[in-house]
Simulated assay, not measured.
Amino acid sequence: MNLEPVSEGHPDVIAYRKLPMPINSVSARQFKLQLLSRGLLDNVDDWVATQSRDVRIGHEYSGTFVKYSPMMAAGFAAMGFTDKQIVAFFIAASKKFD
């Protein structure tokens, strides 16, 4: 195993820096606009209305939605999303500008 440092200009370093950062959270606005664009906002609002008060408060007042929080996991499971679809949802939501 070669543990020698490499320069900033090394092709492997450059390639690594070009990798996209994972999207782990988006603003509430981005999240809800993505729900709206996917035609899911009403379904999610209906689902949230059936949940515990802490989930309802979290949905209404959160400034940020975190991909793998328990509330998100429960909501995405209820909507039948796969992990791949969740990742794609957050990527698309992240492109909605605040």
Rank of each mutant, 00 (worst) to 15 (best):
H59C: 01
N2Y: 05
S69F: 06
S7D: 12
S52E: 15
V13S: 02
V6K: 11
F76P: 03
S69I: 06
Y68D: 15
D45G: 00
M21H: 07
K95D: 09
H10L: 01
K32G: 02
M79I: 08
G58L: 06
G9A: 13
Q85T: 02
L33S: 02
A28E: 02
K84Q: 15
A88I: 02
S7L: 10
V55I: 11
R17T: 07
S37T: 02
D45A: 15
D46Y: 06
N43E: 15
I14S: 08
D54N: 15
A88F: 04
R38C: 11
S27N: 02
A78F: 07
L19Q: 14
A92N: 09
V44C: 13
P70N: 08
D54M: 11
D12G: 05
A15G: 02
S69N: 07
G63K: 11
K67Q: 15
Q30I: 03
N43C: 10
V48E: 01
K67T: 07
Y16P: 00
L19T: 10
V13C: 10
A74H: 09
M1Y: 08
L41K: 10
D45F: 05
E8W: 06
V13L: 02
N43R: 15
Y16Q: 08
G80V: 02
L35P: 04
F97V: 13
M1D: 11
M79E: 12
D54F: 15
K96C: 01
S69T: 08
I23F: 03
M71S: 13
D83E: 15
M79G: 04
P11I: 05
A49V: 02
L33R: 13
I23M: 04
